[in-house]
Amino acid sequence: MSSIPALVVDNLRKTYGNGVEALKGVSLTVQPGDFFALLGPNGAGKSTLIGILSSLVNSSGGDAQVFGISVNKQRSEAMRLIGLVPQEINFNQFEKPFDICVNEAGFYGIPRRIAMERAEKYLKELRLWDKAQHQARMLSGGMKRRLMIARAMMNEPKLLILDEPTAGVDIEIRRSMWQFVSGINAAGTTVILTTHYLEEAEQLCRNIAIIDHGTIVENTTMKRLLSKLDVETFVFDVAGVPGELPALPGVALRRVDEHTLEAEMARTHDLNSLFAALTAHGITVTSMRNKTNRLEELFVRLVEHGRQEPGRNGQEQAA
């Protein structure tokens, strides 16, 4: 695999005409073959960053390089390497999915014969082949999202950028989409994902950057980030809850209802002593799970911490 990073973002800045500073010098690197999560709350600057990478937004400063090719200086060459699945539906809804895909390939200079073969391949892989000759406006929301993935694959990009591709998509289709994208990633395509479904990011991505108010507040491996979470809450489904709960140092145990208990404890705390105490009190645990997605908990903490920190997010200028 190439040693050139798939993406280098260097001090990228964007100030819109209305004065809003969407990116305040963002820098990050994505290695080739990575499955990279770019997370952040609404308005954090994710879509602006993706817009600059895909040349839909003009940057105010800095540069980005896709496999060593500058987006600013060699736009055409850089765009050949990128596939974009945008947040909003952006195809002509009166065209047929097959034509949308073939035309997309044409825009990349791919001859029609090859384009037609690829359109068939990707529409089949994304289970849209039976709709290939229907008007796109007749497709369901999930189908439209899958069509945008098929379209983005037409130039067989080395870097696939997915901007909230599963928004409003049901769980079954979401899973099939991730299966497809994981396969693409396993075959060597670098994937950058933004999503509000943090469990997706946790399951799929190896590295992560969290952006808030136009700055990167965290950029690390998923494993290292999750290890920062020092407290976890477990939910226990139990056969029955007695009147009195066992008291255990370092564990906040509480009753949720007749058949559910919650235990909040440090990540380093062992579970054996808790199970021993529950058993001693005659409580039979039938199943257990994490109360919230771990990444979600960290995400909220990082973003909230950033907001409370003085001197950030334009507070200096306002003071």
């Binding site: 895909s54 055409s76 060459e77 765009m79 945008p86 997309e104 990349y108």
Partner: peptide
Amino acid sequence: EEMLVSPMP
């Protein structure tokens, strides 16, 4: 946007 994000001049 299909055209704007493509390498087309």
